[in-house]
Design a protein around this nucleic acid. Structure first.
Length: 934
RNA sequence: ACCCGAGUGGUGGAAUUGGUAGACACGCAGGACUUAAAAUCCUGUGGCUAGUAAUAGCUGUACGGGUUCAACUCCCGUCUCGGGUACCA
């Protein structure tokens, strides 16, 4: 005897959560006899603040999919774990003296409790934590695979360093140039022969190999954040300040580990064509990779000292070669000092020190500001021998292309502003397309002032120019990428140590059998101050022998997250990161759900690691995620109360213009819709114990605003609170009911009653007024079967489309219809319970058990949709006149068009509109609509 | 500035390949039950106009055009909001 009441819900949910755990119903084995399905949530960082209702949104979605696939007969992998390394725990340790391992473990425990209350079907036996040595042993191992590999450009795949050495011994590097075209050997050359290679000493050989390794050490410009005492990745810097904390960031040269992700730029781009990500997600990644096609052109150079004979530029517009009026070189460019004439040295030095004084923030804030300085040197246009001045300016970046550009003011906005600002004469090569006031970057113009190109369309000129450059031996087609190699060192404690040993300042991989290299225990987490991380303070650990040292840096959190989805497949394997069988069976992640904030960093690194492991023969797929869904953010819906200034009185929102009031945020948890629970308000804060209220219609109505969910706005909704009041099943369904998964939306509890009522109606369908089970074994009618199969069909379709809000609606419609039919037949309700189980697993289990089943509903089978119950013999046609619906007529679906037309035209309403005249046209779409055109 | 995505009642949102706009739910209004309230159930609910009413007509998917027998859906332009990028040659 039970009602679906608050007390009963609590009992049911606790009962099943316990039983699920006891029986291990979510434990999944690698069973190749069954088809597999892999549903994955993005790795959470277990923060101390716990979950708010925004977090589980995506988890609920994947949980529904996982449960649905299970009742559809799949073997479903649905794991969860923790991205447990990271800065917040380390900051907390510095501030509160609690070891990151301890605070992290505690946070995980809270997190887990909250997750469990929502009834997720995670196989916890597969849980991973990136900070667990058993896990990071393999993070370090994969890092060593990257260290031991290089990218063979002609094959477009990674190979072992061993293979590279074999190539060098055979033919030097003539077929495998240095990935960084600017790199020079101590001799000044960039090419070496087989005999050169053999003559190099070991250190130089290692230095050369380092230029090729996918994980390599180099002096690189890094984003140094003094306040955090660490280096930040490009994506951790926003507008020149740190993503976390907003501290200033400056450029600094440091010897850092990097991943040579740029070598994979093309494959990362191409791979996007195979995967099912949203267009916007693909766009973000494409923009980040930033591929551009163009040409590299060599210009001869005329300068006072004549040390430098020529310069190279990269341009996407070789067709504009006759419009070049000047050259601009990055201030940091090597050749600057050599080409500067003595008469310009003073100015150039002044400009260089100005550039050096400017921080990232300054530069970003003043993008529009035009600065620059003439060097006194000239470049010679190879086609007409015209001499153009060479300038330096900070708008040209040293790190992109060749660090030098050709200025074409009539076609490029920045070049135009530059030319105008410094009074450089502008050559117009696009005729009327250039108005003298602003640049026009068109491709459509017919070229003028362009000698042999005159009369040629710009689009077509592109190929002509490149061919000619190649012929003359002064240029070639080239593709450039915006993306840079990924900085992989962090000056932090709480991360994976690098599994290398420095001998003579050169890193060597640790032996695989010595992994993991465990993080040493310490209580000192502050950085060493010298720019090195906290590990540098642990001399005993850092210094292995007189000439042997460890790396004082640790890896970024992206490392552990770049491969965790593979570990879930075989989480306890101590011999490999995962067995070949497990990797082959579980294969790609079928659906991956998470926020779009991971678009560039995490997803690109995970895709990179997968590709490398694939190239090295460990995986038979090279894209990790088949389908990716970005859940929208849930924003907060704040509530305000209005205090009359100077009094201890609060006035309801509708009456505030009669008083002078101050708006105060009020905890949304004590407001129902817009109505304040005045009793709870008095208890909320001691200051409010004796307040008075001025009500409207007997109620206190609050004001509202949509803001981000934040503790300080008192608009954070903890899922525990919802579960307390309505139960986990209502929470799950309500979060889905809010709207499309991908869409951002404000949290508001105002509609939650509707979902709760639905569940109760479902319950009541098979109970009488006293709460006793009341089921009928009678044969269902045709109508009841139609309702059932219509619902089953829609639910299946919706889940396949990740459209969960509409499936919740469909369930509601179904229950409303069955209620109207007073249907309590087992043959109808049983399949519905199975269909509902992914959404409301606790209630479904309880009802399933009440129906007499001893096994969990998880092992039931989703009923097959029988189309035969859905076929209709007639259709209620909307009859429109000139496109406007004027009437409805029920007609058989197999009625011939002529008969339909006859009936429609004969009808009274149509007669009224036609007024006896013959219509111009009658359009009949069988099963859809009839339109009479007058 | 550039590149994406979105804009539908008082609210969240629905609408297969162009084919009945507003499903479902909240809120609101009225009614039933109750001494009363809560809870529950039933009915109505985009706006405007006419009518006691059933109903009829007009209007309506950010705005202005267009294509079509038919447009929330396709095309062109404008505005607003959200996301991404930040001098990438």
């Amino acid at each position: 005897m039970a009602d679906y009441s608050k007390e009963e819900i609590k009992k049911i949910e606790e009962k099943w959560q316990q039983k699920w755990r006891q029986d291990g119903v979510y434990k999944v084995s690698n069973d190749p006899s069954k088809p597999k399905y892999y549903a994955l949530d993005m790795f959470p960082y277990p923060s101390g603040a716990g979950l708010h209702v925004g977090h589980p949104l995506g988890y609920i979605a994947t949980d529904i999919v996982a449960r649905f696939k299970r009742v559809k007969g799949f073997n479903v992998l649905h794991p969860m774990g923790y991205d447990a390394f990271g800065l917040p725990a380390e900051q907390y340790a510095i501030e509160h003296g609690v070891h990151p391992a301890i605070s992290t473990a505690k946070n995980i425990e809270t997190f887990r409790k909250q997750l469990d209350r929502i009834g997720f079907c995670y196989d916890w036996s597969r849980e991973v934590r990136t900070c667990d040595p058993k896990y990071y042993k393999w993070t370090q191992w994969i890092f060593l695979q990257l260290f031991d590999s290089w990218f063979n450009r002609s094959l477009q795949k990674a190979e072992r360093i061993e293979q590279l050495i074999a190539n060098f011994e055979k033919e030097g590097n003539k077929n495998h140039h240095f990935p960084n075209a600017k790199y020079r050997l101590p001799s000044g050359n960039s090419a070496f022969s087989a005999s050169d290679w053999k003559s190099f000493d070991k250190k130089i050989q290692q230095e050369i190999l380092m230029q090729y390794r996918l994980a390599y050490l180099a002096h690189t410009d890094v984003n140094w954040c003094e306040a955090l005492g660490t280096v930040l990745a490009n994506d951790e810097v926003i507008n020149g300040v740190s993503y976390r904390g907003g501290h200033p960031v400056v450029k600094r040269q440091m010897r850092q580990w990097s991943l040579r992700i740029t070598e994979y730029a093309e494959r990362l781009l191409k791979g996007l064509k195979e995967v099912d990500f949203s267009e916007s997600m693909k766009d973000i990644q494409r923009n980040w990779i930033g591929r551009s096609e163009g040409a590299k052109i060599t210009f001869a150079l005329k300068s006072e000292k004549a040390i430098v004979k020529n310069m190279m530029v990269f341009t996407t517009r070789p067709d504009t070669i006759f419009g070049v009026d000047f050259m601009v070189v990055a201030p940091e460019h090597d050749m600057v000092k050599d080409i500067t004439s003595s008469s310009h040295k003073g100015e150039i030095d002044k400009y260089l020190s100005y550039v050096e004084s400017r921080s990232e923030v300054d530069r970003m804030a003043e993008v529009k500001k035009i600065t620059g300085c003439f060097t006194g040197a000239y470049a010679i246009n190879p086609f007409n021998q015209r001499e153009v001045p060479i300038w330096i300016s900070e708008y040209v970046l040293a790190g992109y292309g060749t660090g030098a550009i050709m200025g074409v003011p009539c076609g490029d906005d920045r070049d135009h502003r530059f030319a105008k600002h410094f009074n450089i004469p502008i050559t117009n090569i696009i005729g009327e397309h250039y108005n003298g006031k602003e640049a026009n970057p068109t491709y459509e113009a017919t070229l003028t002032n362009s000698e042999f190109l005159n009369g040629t369309k710009m689009k077509d000129a592109m190929k002509v120019v490149i061919d000619k450059l190649v012929e003359m031996g002064i240029g070639e087609r080239q593709v450039n990428y915006k993306m840079r190699d990924a900085g992989w060192s962090r000056q932090r404690y709480w991360g994976e140590p690098f599994p290398v040993v420095f001998k003579d300042d050169m890193p060597y991989a640790m032996d695989e059998k010595d992994l993991p290299l465990e993080l040493p225990d310490t209580n000192e987490f502050k950085s060493s101050g010298s720019g090195e991380g906290p590990l540098a303070n642990l001399k005993d650990w850092i210094n292995i022998g007189p000439h042997e040292k460890r790396d004082s840096n640790t890896m970024p959190t992206h490392a552990g997250a770049a491969w965790y989805f593979l570990r879930y497949m075989d989480p306890h394997n101590e011999k490999e990161f995962a067995s070949k069988e497990a990797l082959e069976y579980w294969n790609q992640v079928d659906v991956y759900v998470g926020g779009s904030e991971h678009a560039v960093a995490h997803l690109l690194y995970a895709r990179l690691w997968t590709k490398v492991l694939h190239d090295l023969g460990y995986l038979n797929f090279d894209e990790p995620f088949k389908k990716l869904i970005n859940q929208g953010k849930i924003t907060g819906d704040s509530r305000f109360v209005y205090r009359i200034r100077g009094k201890n009185q609060f006035v309801s929102h509708g009456l505030i213009n009669q008083y002078e009031t101050d708006a105060l945020h009020v905890d949304v948890n004590i407001v129902n819709g817009l109505e304040l629970d005045t009793e709870q308000f008095k208890k909320w804060k001691p200051d409010f114990a004796n307040v008075e209220f001025i009500l409207e219609n007997g109620k206190y109505i609050c004001g509202s605003a949509i803001e981000k969910m934040s503790k300080s706005y008192f608009n954070v909704i903890n899922p525990d609170h919802i579960i307390e009041n309505y139960g986990a099943d209502t929470l799950r369904m309500y979060e889905m009911f809010l709207g499309p998964l991908e869409q951002s939306k404000p949290w508001s509890t105002s509609g939650i009653d509707g979902v709760y009522k639905f569940l109760r109606k479902f319950w009541n369908l098979m109970h009488d007024a006293e709460g006793n089970l009341k089921l009928s074994d009678a044969e269902p009618t045709k109508e009841e079967l139609k309702v059932l199969h219509k619902t089953l069909k829609k639910i299946e379709q919706d889940i396949d489309n990740f459209s969960f809000n509409t499936s919740v609606s469909e369930f509601m419609i179904c229950i409303n219809e069955l209620n109207a039919l007073k249907c309590n037949k087992r043959a109808v309700i049983e399949p519905l319970i199975i269909a509902l189980s992914p959404f409301a697993p606790h209630m479904a289990e309880e009802l399933w058990e009440k129906m007499g089943h001893s096994d969990t509903v998880l092992n039931a089978t989703y009923h097959k949709v029988e189309e035969k119950y859905l076929v209709e013999s007639s259709f209620e046609y909307p009859i429109s006149i000139n496109g406007k619906v004027r009437a409805k007529m029920n007609m058989a679906l197999d009625m011939p068009k002529e008969d339909i037309q006859k009936q429609v035209l004969a009808s009274e309403i149509v007669q009224k509109w036609t007024e006896g005249k013959a219509p111009k046209k009658v359009i009949i779409v069988p099963g859809k609509i009839v339109n009479v055109v007058l």
